[in-house]
């Protein structure tokens, strides 16, 4: 069992942070890599990119949004409870290099994944501008951490309750217009990554995105996570999860993420009824 040592609720309880004892994974994990978690014997294997790792404490941190039955099961775990299985670190780490001026764009829980990457990009000597967004102020996560991890933090909300009123792409446009940018890293909902990539293509700025398709094993064995990159099929679990944002077929990815949509909705609603939620 992998014990939960810290648990926090964010974004009005829709987003949960778990710090989990997993010393062997913590020792090896690098920014950008993911783990697969399974809470119970009957549970599903859920891939989540790590939000942090602490080799000294022997822990990894995940931050997830409750979207279905499996994440609802995760939510019910308290401090001292544990996950039955955690597999990792999986996937290729982020390529960290001093390139100059970097813009990190995050939306929703993507900000959690973006945080260690942002920090690492700053540590290797880049000047990092960060743009993070949420639907509304109360749903914004990791503001202080992202401020510390970057040189310049910009905030957007869809409803204008905090920071710029509008989408991250609008602020990104300003940032790109202002001058020399060498790399953009965008992590968030698929439509956000799609539109960020569309914009950076116009400015000819290299863009990295992190994909989270449906997955079973996470080791290249099932091919469920296949994504089209520049017309070629790749497995996100072993070839990714990070890819050149300008090459990704986002429309295909969005459709494939809906493969079990109806099943999952019914399964989640049934679970919520049983839990009296």
């Amino acid at each position: 069992m992998f014990k939960i040592v810290k648990r926090e609720e964010m974004a009005e309880g829709t987003v949960i942070l778990n710090e989990i004892e997993a010393p062997l994974i913590a020792r090896k994990a690098k920014p950008g890599q993911f783990v697969i978690l399974k809470a119970t014997e009957e549970g599903e294997r859920i891939p989540l990119t790590m939000a942090d790792t602490d080799n000294e404490r022997g822990t990894i941190t995940i931050i997830y949004m409750v979207v279905g039955k499996s994440t609802a099961t995760f939510r019910d775990l308290k401090i001292g409870d544990g996950y039955q299985d955690i597999i990792g670190p999986l996937g290729k780490p982020t390529h960290l290099e001093k390139v100059g001026n970097v813009v990190c764009v995050g939306g929703g829980t993507g900000v959690a994944v973006l945080h260690p990457i942002t920090r690492a990009l700053k540590e290797v000597g880049n000047h990092v501008t960060c743009i993070i967004g949420a639907r509304t102020k109360s749903l914004l996560i990791l503001e202080d951490q992202m401020r510390a991890a970057s040189h310049d933090l910009r905030i957007c909300t869809d409803d204008g309750s905090y920071g710029h009123h509008g989408f991250v792409t609008e602020v990104l446009k300003e940032v790109l217009e202002a001058g020399d940018k060498h790399l953009v890293v965008a992590i968030g909902p698929v439509p956000m990554m799609k539109f960020v990539s569309k914009m950076t293509a116009e400015y000819n700025v290299k863009t990295i995105v992190s994909l989270n398709p449906i997955m079973v094993d996470g080791t290249g064995m099932c091919g469920g996570c296949r994504v089209s990159i520049g017309g070629e099929t790749k497995f996100a679990c072993v070839d990714g999860p990070e890819f050149d944002g300008h090459q990704v077929d986002y429309d295909e990815l969005m459709k494939r993420l809906q493969a079990y949509g109806e099943d999952e909705k019914a399964h989640y609603e049934h679970h919520c009824r049983l839990q009296g939620r």
């Binding site: 009957e42 599903e44 294997r45």
Partner: peptide, 21 residues
């Protein structure tokens, strides 16, 4: 591989008792 792994390892044939669809 995916079809059989879901069914056999993850016991998806017993969905929704097991969570994997």
């Amino acid at each position: 591989n995916e079809y059989l792994t879901r069914t056999n390892l993850m016991k998806a044939y017993r969905y929704p008792e097991y969570d994997t669809p």
